[in-house]
Write a protein that binds this DNA or RNA. Structure first.
Lengths: 139, 139
DNA sequence: GATACGATCTCTAGCGACTAGAGCTTCAAG
DNA sequence: CTTGAAGCTCTAGTCGCTAGAGATCGTATC
C-alpha cells in the first residue's frame, strides 16, 4: 500500500490541505516522497490520521490530541493521563451544553414573545437591547 | 455625558480593544474625537454597545448582529426578519446541543470503560483509534 | 507652568484550525 | 508523447478578538 495524499484523504475523510496542515504543525510526521517530491503514505499513517479525525470529531483540541498520541505510543505507561484528558474534556463539554441550554431557553422565550408585528413592538430586539429589564422579568 | 473609551468599556463590560475593533469593522460608527484625537461617547453608543454585547452573549454572529441593528433602526418595518434570524439561531443552537450531547455520551462511556490500567488496555485510546469497531460494539 | 502617570492612540501580529487561491510540477492513462 | 487530474509550495484569508510596541494625550498634583 502506497497511498498518494488524495487516497489518504479519501480513506480518512480528512481533506488534503488539512493533511498537509497537520504535517506542518507536526501532528503527522513528514512522509516518504516520490522522486518527484510527492507524499506517499502507508497503513500507520492511515491509522494515525483516523485517530486524529475521530478525536477532532469528539471535539478534542489539537494539543490534547498531541498528548493522546504521545501516550498511545507508550503502551506500558499508566492510562491515568489519558483518563484525565478525557475527563477534563467531558467537563468542558458539559459546561458548554449547560450554557447552550440557557441560551436556548432565552432564545425560545424571545421567539415565543414575538408578536410578528412591527420592529417597534418586537420583543426580540427589545430583549436584546435591554438585558437588565429582561432579567427582572424572568427571574 | 462624555465618556472616554475606558468609561464606555466599564459601563458595557466590553473591553477597550474590542470597542476599537467593532469600530474598525463598522459595527460602531466612528465617534467624535477630542482635539487630541481621543474617542468620546454618549448614551446612544452605550445603548448600541450593550445591545451588541448581549447579542454576542446569546451567541449571535457579528453579521447577524449587524442585521438586527439595521432592523432596529427601522421601527416601522415588519419584525418577520428579526424573528427569522432568531429562529435560525435557535435552530443552530439546538443542533449544537444535540451534537454535544452525543459527544458527551460517547466520552462518558469511554471514561467509564477505562480500567485505570496501562495504555495498552485503555479503552479511551482504543475507542478513539478505532471508531468503526466502537460503533459496532455499541449500536 | 512643569511634571508625572495612567489612559489612549495607531499599527502590526498572533490565536486556532483550518480554507482558498496562484502558479507551478508530477503522475498515470491512453 | 500528450493530456489532464492531482500534486506541489507559498501566501493570505477566515472569525472575533487579544497582545504588544512605541508614541501621544489628559488630568491631577506640586
Amino acid at each position: 500500500m502506497n497511498l498518494a495524499i488524495g487516497d489518504l484523504s479519501q480513506r480518512t475523510q480528512v481533506k488534503v490541505p488539512t493533511i498537509r496542515y497537520y504535517e506542518q504543525i507536526g501532528l503527522l510526521a513528514p512522509p516518504v516522497r516520490t522522486e518527484g517530491k510527492q507524499r506517499r503514505y502507508g497503513p500507520p499513517e492511515v491509522k494515525r490520521l483516523n485517530f486524529i479525525r475521530h478525536a477532532r470529531e469528539l471535539g478534542f483540541e489539537i494539543d490534547e490530541i498531541r498528548q493522546l498520541l504521545t501516550l498511545s505510543e507508550e503502551p506500558q505507561a499508566s492510562c491515568h493521563e489519558a483518563d484525565s484528558i478525557a475527563r477534563h474534556h467531558l467537563d468542558e463539554i458539559e459546561q458548554r451544553i449547560a450554557k447552550l441550554e440557557a441560551l436556548r431557553a432565552e432564545l425560545h422565550r424571545m421567539v415565543g414573545e414575538c408578536g410578528h408585528g412591527r420592529i417597534c413592538e418586537c420583543r426580540i430586539i427589545e430583549v436584546i437591547a435591554d438585558h437588565t429589564q429582561c432579567e427582572h422579568e424572568t427571574h
